[in-house]
Structures are given as C-alpha cells and as structure tokens.
Amino acid sequence: MLKQQLQTDMKTAMKAGDKAKLGVIRLVLAAVKQREVDERIELDDAQVLAVLDKMVKQRRDSITQYAGAGRDDLAAVEQFELEVIQSYLPQALTDEEIDASITAAITASGAAEMRDMGKVMAVLKPQLQGRADIGAVSARVKQRLGG
C-alpha cells in the first residue's frame, strides 16, 4: 500500500531529522486525507497515484512560472518537492511503451475517429496513471485518431 509507505517514510524522516522531506511527505498525506474526507472513502493505490500525479503536475507548472519570473529560489524548492513526490510514482513508461498502450486501447475500444477519443482515454487512464503524462498521452491519441 502506497499510503502505508508514505506514513512509514514520514516516521523515518522524523527520526532522521530530515525536515525538508518530512514537509513534502506531510503535504502528500494531507492531500490524500483531504480527498478521503471530501469523498468519504478510503483511497486505494490507484487513487493515491492520481493524487500524486496531480501534485506532480502542479509542481511542474509552478517551476515553469517561478523560473519565468526569475525566482530560482522558489523554483528550487518546487523541484525538490517534485523529486520527492516522483519517488513514490512507478517507473515512467518509455515512448514505445506508451505507443503500444495507445494502439492496444484503440483496438480494444474499437475507436476509429475523433469522437471515440473518450473511449480510448477511459481504457488508457487507469493503465498509465502515474506512469505517463496523461495530457501528452491525450495529445498522442488525438493525433492518432486524426484530430
């Protein structure tokens, strides 16, 4: 369980006195807990991955904005948070693996044109969550379906 791993790592960071890493893990656990409270459910690993994926996207956006504004100090903080969060995500897929998944999803869903994109993404999203940038995958699917 990913959530248990986060809690274990939080305790380890506390004992080691690693305040920076502890802060990031607490942010992640707070986001997970917030979603659990909002939806009144216990999150499984796939849902925790979705939370982590969202946090990674937010950090990437922040880094871009801070770097553009010349705030390298804040960009460095966001970069550190990004690296810690990414350490809990599964190994990223290669372009070839993503293309193979897209091909399989198009075949499985019977997609032939642009209006079938939702069907393809419904198949792909659970498979690729946390392992690929869903926005980039969506653009590839759109291109393959002639969009």
Rank of each mutant, 00 (worst) to 15 (best):
G135F: 02
E113A: 02
G135E: 13
Q129V: 05
Q47L: 12
Q79C: 02
I85S: 08
M1D: 09
Q58S: 13
L145S: 12
L29H: 11
D45A: 05
A75V: 11
F80K: 04
A69M: 14
K11L: 12
G110F: 13
D53M: 01
K119P: 04
M117N: 12
I25R: 14
V51N: 02
L49W: 01
L128E: 05
Y88M: 10
T107D: 10
K11D: 12
L2F: 11
R40G: 07
R144F: 00
A16N: 14
I85M: 06
D61M: 13
F80I: 00
Y66L: 13
M117E: 15
A46F: 00
R35F: 05
L89P: 11
A76Q: 06
E42F: 15
G70M: 03
Q5I: 06
I63V: 15
K19T: 00
I25Y: 08
A67V: 12
G70S: 07
K3Q: 08
A76M: 08
M117P: 08
L49V: 04
S109N: 04
E39L: 04
V123A: 11
M10H: 07
Q143G: 09
D44E: 07
M117H: 15
A136F: 01
A122K: 14
L128Y: 04
T94D: 00
K21T: 12
V48L: 11
F80W: 02
K54L: 10
L43M: 10
Q47S: 06
A30M: 14
I98R: 01
D95S: 09
T64V: 15
G135A: 06
A132D: 04
I25E: 14
A46I: 04
K11V: 03
L128F: 01
E78G: 10
G147P: 12
V123Q: 07
Q5R: 09
A122R: 11
Q86E: 14
V51A: 04
Q4E: 09
G146L: 01
K11T: 03
Y88Q: 04
A122P: 05
T103F: 09
A67Q: 09
A20D: 15
G70I: 04
Q58R: 12
D73Q: 07
A104V: 02
Q34G: 11
P90L: 13
V28Y: 00
V37E: 02
R59V: 06
K33V: 07
D53A: 06
Q143M: 05
A108Q: 11
A50H: 05
K21L: 08
R59W: 05
I134K: 06
K54R: 15
I41C: 09
Q7V: 05
T64N: 06
V37D: 04
R40W: 13
A69R: 15
T8Y: 14
M14L: 08
I41A: 14
E113C: 00
A76R: 09
R26D: 11
L27H: 13
A31F: 07
Q86G: 10
I102F: 07
V141N: 10
L52T: 00
L93F: 03
E96K: 01
A46T: 05
F80M: 05
A132Y: 01
S101A: 11
R35P: 03
Y88C: 12
D61H: 09
L145F: 08
K33A: 12
